[in-house]
């Protein structure tokens, strides 16, 4: 699993550094932009596109699955829709929906990176969203482990 470093720089408060993991539904690339929360129901075909200028990074707090028994789109398609609406990256807070990690494992080559965050790091991030008007986010790729060099290949 490819780890992600998430640097959150609120407008008037000390920055914080969090950790997440890249979901393989999308490409593993760094990204940066203004942080905007998206309600889970905002990422549906029939929901309104807010026409925010592009170049933002969206955070979606996922609810427990039983609270949205038939979601309008799969999480992969929600991530794709967010990208089409201008998001440079999509952060999913999966604290209350661990099944999201499996749903976002199957590669689909989405251009905008998708990062999963959970637990204390997610709580800190949502805390920033709740208490601040604006924040900037930098997503970096934590150096992956080097490619293992095998001397002998066992067939």
């Amino acid at each position: 699993v490819q780890k992600a470093i998430i640097r959150v720089i609120p407008l008037k408060v000390e920055p914080i550094v969090l950790e997440g993991e890249f979901a393989s539904v999308a490409e593993v690339t760094p990204a940066e932009g203004k942080l905007l929360q998206s309600h889970p129901l905002s990422l549906c075909n029939t929901s309104e596109d807010e026409h925010t200028e592009s170049g933002f990074i969206t955070i979606v707090k996922l609810e427990q699955p039983d609270r949205d028994p038939n979601p309008c789109l799969s999480l992969a398609n929600k991530a794709k829709l967010a990208g089409e609406r201008g998001a440079r990256a999509i952060l999913f807070d999966i604290t209350d929906d661990e099944s999201a990690a499996d749903q976002l494992r199957k590669p689909r080559g989405l251009s905008q990176p998708v990062v999963l965050i959970r637990g204390h790091d997610a709580e800190l991030l949502m805390g920033v969203v709740n208490k601040n008007r604006e924040a900037h986010v930098k997503i970096e790729v934590k150096e992956p482990p080097a490619w293992p060099d095998y001397d002998v290949w066992i067939l």
Partner: peptide, 8 residues
């Protein structure tokens, strides 16, 4: 490295 399995 970044060589991702993909079914794109």
């Amino acid at each position: 490295g970044y060589f991702r399995a993909s079914n794109q």
